[in-house]
Structures are given as structure tokens and as C-alpha cells.
């Protein structure tokens, strides 16, 4: 039942966002499995795009549009380094901009202007900062000036594996208390962090982000991260959800996700962490603490 409701929510969202955007998108790499999803940790902060591979595979336009910017190299003519490598940017009639980065040198279509969905734009992943791995794919809503999670709009990837929660931890005063192993805690404010990844069906170690994270304390929802969109506000990239987490403070150095600081009052406290992926698979983890 819960899974059905989740799938329904994802479907509604996938329909709601394209109200200002495309009706349907095609995967930039056919049969593509994202190496990194929107919100994954990369370069110490969350990624407002996705990485799709493998390197060398043809990269296709996800929907019809017009090419607005092409660049083939690692340094722009002005001398600005270009860690995004080879770039193709497209403007779509519905106000979306798609950007394909880290494309192979010499593979870009400098002769093209109008592009149909599925047209080849180049080959993936041999330029820029993460050369030799994947292409970068970004979707941006020009009207709202926000990044969109492409995976909400792309055809679903077969996935019957639930997200993995490798641990939930409470930290205070320089000490960390793993939930489940800890029975009693002293009253006070604790930072809750979680070690979460979405393994998809294919077994690989890429730390993909889930689709949503909810934390309930004593049945009350205190955190709700929804990986649907992000935008820069006042020079800081933030998730565009109720939590509005700052990109720089979202992850700990070891990749665990910060869920926030909470005051635990005396008595029995129940913590429940609900994590779901794009296919609606859900993982529930929790524990009961006696706060003294």
C-alpha cells in the first residue's frame, strides 16, 4: 500500500513538473544507468545534475530543442578553466534548458542548430574534471531559475532494491551514538546523521542518492528532504524543499547526510527514518531511546 502511494506521488510529481516543462524525456544515453543521481555527493557537495555513462557512449538529446551553446575543450577562450569539459546546451520550447557536459573532444555537432529528441550530440565523458568517466546531464527550469531532478522526468529504471540505510547516528559533545546500538541517552540537543545510498538493481558501489528522506521523532515528521529540485539563493545552492538545506552543509566529510539538530527531552523517544527511491522502494529504519 505504502509502495503504491509512493509510486503515485512520484508519478504525480513527474506530471506536475512538466506542467512548466517537457511532456516526456528520453535518456541521454540509451539504456543508461545513472552513475550519480541528483543530490549525490560530488566534490564535497550535492550534485544538482546527474552523471551518466559509460564513457564513449553516444549522448542523445532528451527532447527536441535548439542548441544554444557548444564548447569543445578544457579551457574557454577567455582563459576561464572549463571543468565541465565539452559542453552542449540546448533550449527547449517549454522553458527548459538541458546541458550535456564532459563530452568527448571532437565529437560535438558544431553544424547543428535544431535537434530532435534522440539526435546524437556527441560521445560521453572524456573531457573536463572527471574525464574518462561519465557525461554530466543537467536540467534547468529557465522560468523558475531552478535545477530539476532529471530522473523524475526520465523513463523509470528497473529497480526492485530498496535504498540502503547503513546507519543512523546521533552526535553531541564530540561523541557519536549509533541508533539501534544505543539504548539510553542524556537529555540534550543531538545532530542526527544518516548513511544512505540507493544501490539500484545493478550491484555497484556508486553512492547514488535516494529520492526522499523523512525523519519522524515520536511520530512527528521533523525532516523531509525531497530530491526534486534545487536552486541557488543568495549565493548558496539549496534543495528546493521544506528543509531548504544548504549544499555546503548537507554532507559530512565522510559522505553521511546531516538531518539536523534536535532536542531530545526526557522520556522514551522513537526515531524512524523512511527512505524511498524513484521506483517507490522504501526502507524503514528506527529505534527507541530512553532519554535520561
Amino acid at each position: 500500500m505504502v509502495r503504491t502511494v509512493r509510486r503515485l506521488l512520484v508519478t504525480i510529481l513527474a506530471c506536475a513538473i512538466p506542467a512548466a516543462g517537457p511532456a516526456a524525456l528520453e535518456w541521454p544515453i540509451a539504456g543508461g544507468v545513472p552513475a550519480l543521481t541528483f543530490g549525490s555527493r560530488r566534490a564535497g557537495r550535492f550534485l544538482p545534475s546527474m552523471a551518466v555513462g559509460p564513457a564513449g557512449a553516444p549522448v542523445r538529446a532528451v527532447s527536441p530543442g535548439e542548441i544554444t551553446f557548444l564548447f569543445d575543450g578544457d579551457k574557454l577562450p577567455s582563459g576561464l578553466p572549463c571543468p565541465l569539459g565539452g559542453i552542449v546546451a540546448m533550449s527547449h520550447p517549454d522553458g527548459m534548458i538541458s546541458v550535456y557536459g564532459r563530452m568527448e573532444r571532437g565529437s560535438l555537432p558544431f553544424y547543428l542548430r535544431s535537434v530532435a529528441a534522440g539526435d546524437i550530440l556527441g560521445r560521453a565523458g572524456t573531457s573536463g574534471y572527471f574525464a574518462g568517466r561519465e557525461a554530466s546531464f543537467t536540467l534547468f527550469d529557465r522560468v523558475k531559475r531552478q535545477y530539476l531532478n532529471p530522473q523524475v522526468l526520465l523513463p523509470p529504471v528497473r529497480d526492485d532494491r530498496a535504498p540502503a540505510v547503513r546507519g543512523v547516528f546521533l552526535a553531541a559533545g564530540g561523541r557519536t551514538y549509533p541508533l539501534g546500538e544505543t539504548r539510553t541517552l542524556r537529555q540534550g540537543t543531538y545532530e542526527v546523521v544518516a548513511d544512505i545510498l540507493d544501490p539500484l538493481s545493478a550491484p555497484d558501489a556508486a553512492p547514488r542518492a535516494p529520492y526522499s528522506i523523512r525523519l519522524l521523532i515520536d511520530g512527528k515528521e521533523v525532516v523531509r528532504y525531497l530530491y526534486d529540485a534545487a536552486r541557488a539563493e543568495d549565493g548558496r545552492l539549496r534543495f528546493f524543499g521544506p528543509a531548504r538545506r544548504d549544499s555546503d552543509s548537507y554532507f559530512l566529510d565522510d559522505g553521511r547526510i546531516r538531518l539536523g539538530q534536535f532536542l531530545l527531552a526526557r522520556g522514551r523517544t522513537t526515531l524512524v527514518l523512511l527512505v524511498s527511491d524513484y521506483a517507490g522502494n522504501e526502507k524503514e529504519t528506527g529505534g527507541v531511546l530512553l532519554v535520561e
Binding site: R42, A43, R45, L47, P48, S49, G79, L80, P81, C82, P83, L84, G101, G128, Y129, F130, S136, T138
Partner: peptide, 17 residues
């Protein structure tokens, strides 16, 4: 990221630009 100088100032552009 990748560093660069402009007007004698040191900047770094992030991998996602």
C-alpha cells in the same frame, strides 16, 4: 575545481561550473 587568476586575484571554479 580548477584555479585561475583574474586581476591578480586567485579564484577556483567548481567541477560543475
Amino acid at each position: 575545481g580548477w584555479p585561475f587568476f583574474r586581476a591578480g586575484r586567485l579564484f577556483l571554479v567548481s567541477p560543475e561550473m
